[in-house]
Each structure stands twice: as structure tokens, then as C-alpha cells.
């Protein structure tokens, strides 16, 4: 019998006809894992319409084969049809790892699929790695398995979870914890319809009486941790650092007016008099000089950490902790320290 390819599979989530950012992040992460394992990256896209252009985008971030299922009834996510198709696809393609975004949809479908396949699932991972595991009791070594790393117990501990004896190994991964790698526009890949579907057996049983689609909500006010970036962030790409730190700490991304004006992030993230006034337990100001308008929107925060390379920046007047230094170096240190790997 031919050996199964045991690829790394990513479930692609669509948002209004576009690939969700978290799915592209997962493709980048899957690429890394697949390179370590010397296998390919597969993705599966379920959509109400043609996804050829989206598929090319997915390939450009490191996917080898995009499997597509296009049918008008799949325009909006519904648990049973989506879970059935993905479970059947996994049974047929036999990946060793399956990744989902830890979004509302990812957290709805992934447990259903894992239960159907009788395998393990780790929720809300912040990091994934390949490594070995020695089971001392069984005197067995499991080679090249997936370390699924996640905060647990209300964020008070970091746990490494493994699924040594079951395939596939499944995880949902938080949005924003993986940095998008550079897009390779000319990267070649394959786009294939997944056709092995018995549509009569797919249960569409929900009737949607009303549906509203809203912009992504940013819950700055409700957040207990806000990580905000300002004009001191060098570029839009570097603003990902802010997002990564926020995701690592379980916080929400904020921004100063300068960051919004520079086009680093949407206005809904703006903190300050013209944006949102907040008082989280912890506010981390990264590269924000601290104009009065900004300070007025955040000076009531429980604890304020300011990172700025200008020791005279006014933000230090309201901060509890001041770090004079380059945020592009300091933030990765903070992420590392939080993950307890320092």
C-alpha cells in the first residue's frame, strides 16, 4: 500500500468573498510546519462562489494544493454542511495536522470535526512547533509530533498539549499570533475541486429569517488589556508587532491618531479624545509620544507601560513603567517573556 502523504491541512475561512486574514496566517504557519516535516500544505475552501482568485492568494502564502467546494448553499457558514464536508475531506486526504482559525466559525466547526474523527483538538493555540515526545510508561518515542502551545487557566499558565497517538492532530490558532510571511505572487500551486460529495446526504436544516453583516467589532471599551501603537511604529508591516503582542496577552489592539492617519490600522482602533476613551487594567503604549488628546483617552488605565525611544516623550508622564528603547526590539522581548521562554 502506498504511503499516505500526511500533509498539513488548513481550513480556509471566507469573509465577504475574501480570505480571512487568520487563514492566511495559518497557511504561513502550515508552510513552516510542512517544511520541517517534508510534506505539502493543503487547504480546503468552502464558498458560495468561484474562488480562483482567492486560491491564488492562498498559494502565494505557501499552499501547494487548494481544494475547493463551491455551491450557492455554502455562501454563509452553517455547521452541519460545513462540518460534514470537512470531515469527509479529512477522511479522504488523511492529513497529519489540521489547523483552523480560533474565530467564532473555527471554534464552531473544529470541535465538531474532531469529535466526528475521534481525535484530539487544542483550542486557541498561540504557538505551534514540531518536536518529539517520549512516553516513559510505554517506553515509546513519538517523532515529529505537533506541540500545541496555549495559555490556560485564565491565562495564568502556558500549556503544551500533544496528541501523540491519534491522527490528525488538530488545533485552532488565535488570530494575529503568526506574522504573515512575504507573499510570493508567482508561487505555483494547484487548484482542485473536491468533488466527492453526496449532496443529498448533506443536511441544510437551518432557516435564516434575518441576517445582518457588520463590520468587525473592536471592543476597546470592554478590553482589560489594550496594546496600542503610534507614529513610532516604522511601517504598516511593523504594526503586526502590536497585533502580535495584543494577541499574546489576550488584549485588544489600540492606536494613536498618528497610526490611524498613517494607514497602519482602522479608525475603530483609535484611542483618545477623537477615538475611544478607555480605562483597561493594562495599557501598553508603543511608539506613542502621548499628545494630550491621546493621554486624555487612556490616562485612567490601571497600569500603563510606555515604550518610546525618546526619553522626553510626554507619554512617560502618565506611565507607571517606562521603557526607553526601540519598540521593534522591545516588543519581541515582551512576547518571549510572556510565553515564558526567556
Amino acid at each position: 500500500m502506498a504511503k499516505q502523504p500526511e500533509n498539513v491541512l488548513v481550513f480556509i475561512e471566507m469573509e465577504h468573498g475574501k480570505v480571512a486574514e487568520v487563514s492566511l496566517e495559518l497557511v504561513c504557519q502550515a508552510r513552516e510546519l510542512a517544511d520541517t516535516l517534508h510534506v505539502n500544505v493543503d487547504t480546503i475552501v468552502l464558498s458560495g462562489m468561484n474562488v480562483d482568485i482567492c486560491s491564488q492568494t492562498i498559494i502565494s502564502y505557501g499552499c501547494d494544493t487548494v481544494y475547493t467546494v463551491c455551491d450557492g448553499r455554502l455562501e454563509f457558514y452553517e455547521t452541519l454542511p460545513y462540518a460534514r464536508i470537512v470531515s469527509d475531506f479529512v477522511r479522504e486526504s488523511k492529513p497529519q495536522i489540521v489547523l483552523f482559525g480560533a474565530t467564532a466559525i473555527g471554534r464552531d466547526i473544529a470541535p465538531r470535526v474532531a469529535s466526528d474523527l475521534r481525535t484530539g483538538l487544542t483550542a486557541d493555540c498561540t504557538d505551534l512547533k514540531i518536536g518529539d515526545h517520549e512516553d516513559k510508561k510505554q517506553k515509546k518515542v513519538f517523532k515529529n509530533i505537533l506541540y500545541q502551545i496555549r495559555p490556560a487557566f485564565g491565562g495564568n499558565i502556558i500549556a503544551t498539549i500533544i496528541t501523540p497517538e491519534h491522527k490528525p492532530q488538530m488545533a485552532t490558532v488565535r488570530e494575529g499570533v503568526i506574522k504573515l510571511s512575504a507573499q510570493e505572487k508567482k508561487r505555483k500551486g494547484t487548484i482542485k475541486p473536491f468533488g466527492n460529495i453526496n449532496w443529498d446526504a448533506i443536511p441544510f436544516i437551518n432557516t435564516v429569517l434575518e441576517r445582518t453583516i457588520h463590520e468587525k467589532k473592536v471592543n476597546l471599551k470592554g478590553a482589560s488589556i489594550v496594546v496600542a501603537g503610534g507614529g513610532g511604529v516604522a511601517s504598516k508591516e511593523d504594526f503586526d508587532l502590536i497585533k502580535q503582542l495584543a494577541a499574546t496577552l489576550g488584549g485588544v489592539v489600540g492606536a494613536s491618531r498618528a497610526a490611524v492617519d498613517n494607514g497602519y490600522i482602522g479608525k475603530e482602533h483609535q484611542v483618545g479624545q477623537t477615538g475611544t476613551t478607555i480605562r483597561p487594567k493594562l495599557y501598553i503604549a508603543c511608539g506613542i509620544s502621548g499628545a494630550i488628546q491621546h493621554r486624555a483617552g487612556m490616562d485612567q488605565s490601571g497600569k500603563i507601560i510606555a515604550i518610546n525611544n525618546d526619553p522626553e516623550a510626554p507619554i512617560f508622564n502618565v506611565a507607571h513603567y517606562g521603557i526607553v528603547g526601540d519598540l521593534h526590539k522591545v516588543i519581541p522581548m515582551m512576547i518571549k517573556a510572556y510565553k515564558g521562554k526567556s
Binding site: 484530539g120 487544542t122 503544551t160 498539549i161 500533544i162 496528541t163 515582551m334 515564558g340 526567556s342
Partner: peptide, 28 residues
């Protein structure tokens, strides 16, 4: 199917403005 391989406590490394050195020890 899932096993806990390892658990680490989140030891973040510890008001008036306190100056923190921009290095891993300071952040910890």
C-alpha cells in the same frame, strides 16, 4: 487523545514611573 506535555507558569518576569531597562531581564 490530547495529553498535557508541559505546563509552565506564566512568570512574567514582577507607581510612580519606574524605569525599565530595554532588555529581557528588565521586562521579566
Amino acid at each position: 487523545p490530547t495529553k498535557v506535555k508541559k505546563v509552565q507558569s506564566v512568570v512574567f518576569a514582577a507607581s510612580e514611573l519606574k524605569k525599565i531597562e530595554p532588555n529581557p531581564e528588565g521586562i521579566r
